[in-house]
Amino acid sequence: MVKNLVVVVCMGLIFSFMLSVFFFPGFGDWENKSVADYYLRNAFKETNSANVVGAIVWDFRSFDTLGEETVLFTAAIGVFSLIMFGLGKEGE
């Protein structure tokens, strides 16, 4: 009984979230509406790169990419420091 109620509430929430799709601007409609306008018009002028995605990832927002590389490094350190559980030895 409770399980059915939970399922109904979850489905209601999912449908109400999906209704918000009607409020989005159209797909690919970036004129005067977002920061993407500046990026698409000026990426080649400012960074001399043919790949706008690459220019955004590595030039306009390079700090986020540095953060992501650090997350990758942290994951490697985490695996490295925890793998000894399986190998059964605890050393440096």
Partner: peptide, 23 residues
């Protein structure tokens, strides 16, 4: 706000590794 998400991920991943540190 997306920078906040990136550092939130960094904080989360390093705390996952730190919680399991005693093995």
């Amino acid at each position: 706000i997306f920078n906040m998400y990136v550092f939130f991920e960094l904080m989360s991943v390093s705390s996952y590794a730190l919680v399991a540190f005693l093995l």
